[in-house]
Amino acid sequence: MAKMTEIRWHGRGGQGAKTAALLLADSAFNTGKYVQGFPEYGPERMGAPITAYNRISDERCTVHSNIYYPDYVVVVDVTLLSVVDVTKGLKPEGAIIINSGKDPEELRPLLNGYTGRVCTIDAGKISTEELGRNFPNTPMLGAVVKVSGLIDEEEFIEDMKGSFKHKFSTKPQVIEGNMKALIRSMKEVKGL
Protein backbone atom coordinates (compact mmCIF):
# COMPACT_ATOMS: atom_id res chain seq x y z
CA MET A 1 0.00 0.00 0.00
CA ALA A 2 1.18 3.52 -0.75
CA LYS A 3 2.45 5.57 2.16
CA MET A 4 -0.35 7.44 3.82
CA THR A 5 -0.03 10.41 6.13
CA GLU A 6 -2.65 10.86 8.80
CA ILE A 7 -3.17 14.13 10.66
CA ARG A 8 -5.39 14.96 13.61
CA TRP A 9 -6.37 18.55 14.36
CA HIS A 10 -7.44 19.75 17.80
CA GLY A 11 -9.11 23.11 18.16
CA ARG A 12 -12.05 24.83 19.72
CA GLY A 13 -15.37 25.42 17.97
CA GLY A 14 -15.18 28.65 16.00
CA GLN A 15 -11.38 28.76 15.66
CA GLY A 16 -11.33 27.21 12.23
CA ALA A 17 -9.52 23.91 12.83
CA LYS A 18 -12.03 22.24 10.51
CA THR A 19 -11.43 24.88 7.85
CA ALA A 20 -7.68 24.43 8.21
CA ALA A 21 -8.03 20.67 7.71
CA LEU A 22 -10.12 21.26 4.60
CA LEU A 23 -7.60 23.82 3.29
CA LEU A 24 -4.79 21.32 3.75
CA ALA A 25 -6.83 18.71 1.87
CA ASP A 26 -7.39 21.23 -0.94
CA SER A 27 -3.73 22.04 -1.17
CA ALA A 28 -2.63 18.40 -1.20
CA PHE A 29 -5.31 17.66 -3.80
CA ASN A 30 -4.02 20.45 -5.99
CA THR A 31 -0.57 18.88 -5.95
CA GLY A 32 -1.95 15.57 -7.21
CA LYS A 33 -2.66 13.63 -4.02
CA TYR A 34 -5.63 11.61 -2.87
CA VAL A 35 -7.10 13.34 0.15
CA GLN A 36 -9.63 13.06 2.91
CA GLY A 37 -10.56 16.02 5.10
CA PHE A 38 -13.32 15.61 7.64
CA PRO A 39 -14.45 16.93 10.99
CA GLU A 40 -15.80 14.93 13.89
CA TYR A 41 -19.24 16.31 14.66
CA GLY A 42 -20.64 16.56 18.13
CA PRO A 43 -22.79 19.09 19.94
CA GLU A 44 -21.59 22.22 18.16
CA ARG A 45 -20.81 25.06 20.53
CA MET A 46 -18.37 27.92 20.29
CA GLY A 47 -15.29 27.14 22.34
CA ALA A 48 -15.91 23.41 22.83
CA PRO A 49 -13.03 21.09 21.89
CA ILE A 50 -13.37 19.82 18.32
CA THR A 51 -11.38 17.38 16.22
CA ALA A 52 -10.77 17.26 12.47
CA TYR A 53 -8.76 14.85 10.35
CA ASN A 54 -6.74 14.48 7.16
CA ARG A 55 -5.58 11.44 5.24
CA ILE A 56 -3.21 12.19 2.40
CA SER A 57 -1.85 9.53 0.08
CA ASP A 58 -0.85 8.64 -3.48
CA GLU A 59 -3.74 6.15 -3.71
CA ARG A 60 -7.41 6.42 -2.81
CA CYS A 61 -7.97 5.47 0.82
CA THR A 62 -11.15 3.49 1.46
CA VAL A 63 -11.04 3.70 5.27
CA HIS A 64 -13.75 5.94 6.69
CA SER A 65 -13.00 5.82 10.41
CA ASN A 66 -11.55 8.50 12.61
CA ILE A 67 -7.76 8.53 13.02
CA TYR A 68 -6.33 6.87 16.13
CA TYR A 69 -2.63 6.61 15.26
CA PRO A 70 -1.81 9.91 13.56
CA ASP A 71 1.55 10.80 12.05
CA TYR A 72 0.99 14.43 13.03
CA VAL A 73 -1.13 16.22 15.58
CA VAL A 74 -1.92 19.92 15.25
CA VAL A 75 -3.09 21.87 18.30
CA VAL A 76 -4.70 25.14 17.30
CA ASP A 77 -5.47 26.16 20.90
CA VAL A 78 -2.76 25.61 23.50
CA THR A 79 -5.28 25.59 26.37
CA LEU A 80 -6.44 22.19 25.08
CA LEU A 81 -3.22 20.58 26.32
CA SER A 82 -4.66 20.34 29.81
CA VAL A 83 -8.12 19.25 28.60
CA VAL A 84 -7.58 16.71 25.79
CA ASP A 85 -5.03 13.89 25.57
CA VAL A 86 -3.70 15.36 22.33
CA THR A 87 -0.76 12.96 21.90
CA LYS A 88 -2.93 9.84 22.25
CA GLY A 89 -1.80 7.37 19.60
CA LEU A 90 0.60 9.88 18.02
CA LYS A 91 3.50 8.05 16.37
CA PRO A 92 6.88 8.81 18.00
CA GLU A 93 8.44 9.22 14.53
CA GLY A 94 5.82 11.88 13.81
CA ALA A 95 5.42 15.29 15.41
CA ILE A 96 3.06 17.55 17.31
CA ILE A 97 2.66 21.15 16.20
CA ILE A 98 1.30 23.55 18.80
CA ASN A 99 0.12 27.13 18.46
CA SER A 100 2.29 28.76 21.10
CA GLY A 101 5.04 31.34 21.50
CA LYS A 102 6.89 29.06 23.91
CA ASP A 103 9.88 26.90 23.10
CA PRO A 104 8.96 23.27 22.34
CA GLU A 105 10.80 21.88 25.36
CA GLU A 106 8.78 24.13 27.69
CA LEU A 107 5.61 22.39 26.52
CA ARG A 108 6.90 18.83 26.44
CA PRO A 109 6.10 18.22 30.14
CA LEU A 110 2.41 18.77 29.26
CA LEU A 111 2.45 16.04 26.60
CA ASN A 112 2.04 12.85 28.65
CA GLY A 113 5.57 11.61 28.00
CA TYR A 114 5.50 12.03 24.21
CA THR A 115 9.01 11.31 22.94
CA GLY A 116 8.74 12.50 19.33
CA ARG A 117 9.29 15.92 17.82
CA VAL A 118 7.53 18.87 19.44
CA CYS A 119 7.15 21.97 17.27
CA THR A 120 5.69 25.34 18.17
CA ILE A 121 4.54 28.26 16.12
CA ASP A 122 3.22 31.55 17.45
CA ALA A 123 0.30 31.60 15.03
CA GLY A 124 -1.63 34.10 17.12
CA LYS A 125 1.21 36.64 17.04
CA ILE A 126 1.92 36.17 13.33
CA SER A 127 -1.75 36.47 12.49
CA THR A 128 -2.22 39.57 14.62
CA GLU A 129 0.82 41.26 13.10
CA GLU A 130 0.13 40.34 9.47
CA LEU A 131 -3.68 40.30 9.41
CA GLY A 132 -4.52 42.56 12.29
CA ARG A 133 -6.64 39.83 13.88
CA ASN A 134 -6.18 36.48 15.54
CA PHE A 135 -6.92 33.97 12.74
CA PRO A 136 -4.45 31.20 13.52
CA ASN A 137 -5.49 29.03 10.53
CA THR A 138 -3.14 30.25 7.86
CA PRO A 139 0.03 30.19 9.97
CA MET A 140 -0.86 26.76 11.39
CA LEU A 141 -1.29 25.45 7.86
CA GLY A 142 2.14 26.79 6.86
CA ALA A 143 3.73 25.18 9.91
CA VAL A 144 2.12 21.79 9.17
CA VAL A 145 3.40 21.78 5.61
CA LYS A 146 6.88 22.81 6.78
CA VAL A 147 7.08 20.20 9.56
CA SER A 148 5.53 17.31 7.64
CA GLY A 149 7.16 17.90 4.26
CA LEU A 150 3.89 16.57 2.79
CA ILE A 151 3.76 19.06 -0.04
CA ASP A 152 6.64 20.68 -1.92
CA GLU A 153 7.04 24.12 -0.29
CA GLU A 154 7.24 26.13 -3.52
CA GLU A 155 4.24 24.31 -4.97
CA PHE A 156 2.32 24.87 -1.74
CA ILE A 157 3.02 28.61 -1.69
CA GLU A 158 1.98 28.97 -5.33
CA ASP A 159 -1.17 26.97 -4.73
CA MET A 160 -2.13 28.99 -1.65
CA LYS A 161 -1.65 32.22 -3.59
CA GLY A 162 -4.24 30.94 -6.06
CA SER A 163 -6.59 29.78 -3.29
CA PHE A 164 -6.46 33.11 -1.45
CA LYS A 165 -7.07 35.02 -4.69
CA HIS A 166 -10.17 32.92 -5.23
CA LYS A 167 -11.31 32.89 -1.60
CA PHE A 168 -10.79 36.61 -1.01
CA SER A 169 -11.85 37.85 -4.46
CA THR A 170 -14.14 40.40 -2.77
CA LYS A 171 -11.51 41.60 -0.30
CA PRO A 172 -8.13 41.42 -2.06
CA GLN A 173 -6.54 43.55 0.65
CA VAL A 174 -6.20 40.52 2.91
CA ILE A 175 -4.43 38.32 0.34
CA GLU A 176 -1.00 39.82 0.95
CA GLY A 177 -1.32 39.54 4.73
CA ASN A 178 -2.33 35.90 4.47
CA MET A 179 0.58 35.11 2.19
CA LYS A 180 2.98 36.87 4.54
CA ALA A 181 1.57 34.98 7.51
CA LEU A 182 1.94 31.71 5.64
CA ILE A 183 5.55 32.28 4.62
CA ARG A 184 6.54 33.66 8.02
CA SER A 185 5.13 30.64 9.81
CA MET A 186 7.12 28.33 7.55
CA LYS A 187 10.27 30.18 8.61
CA GLU A 188 9.46 30.70 12.28
CA VAL A 189 8.21 27.28 13.31
CA LYS A 190 10.43 25.95 16.12
CA GLY A 191 11.55 22.40 16.84
CA LEU A 192 12.22 21.24 13.27
Binding site: L22, A25, D26, F29, Y34, V35, Q36, G37, F38, P39, Y41, R60, H64
Partner: peptide, 12 residues
Protein backbone atom coordinates in the same frame (compact mmCIF):
# COMPACT_ATOMS: atom_id res chain seq x y z
CA UNK B 1 -25.03 8.07 1.68
CA UNK B 2 -23.65 8.15 5.22
CA UNK B 3 -24.21 11.35 7.16
CA UNK B 4 -21.03 13.27 8.03
CA UNK B 5 -18.79 10.27 7.26
CA UNK B 6 -19.18 10.87 3.54
CA UNK B 7 -21.59 13.82 3.36
CA UNK B 8 -19.16 16.20 5.10
CA UNK B 9 -15.84 14.62 4.12
CA UNK B 10 -13.83 16.11 1.29
CA UNK B 11 -12.44 13.40 -0.99
CA UNK B 12 -11.24 13.05 -4.55
Amino acid sequence: QDGFITSHAIEN
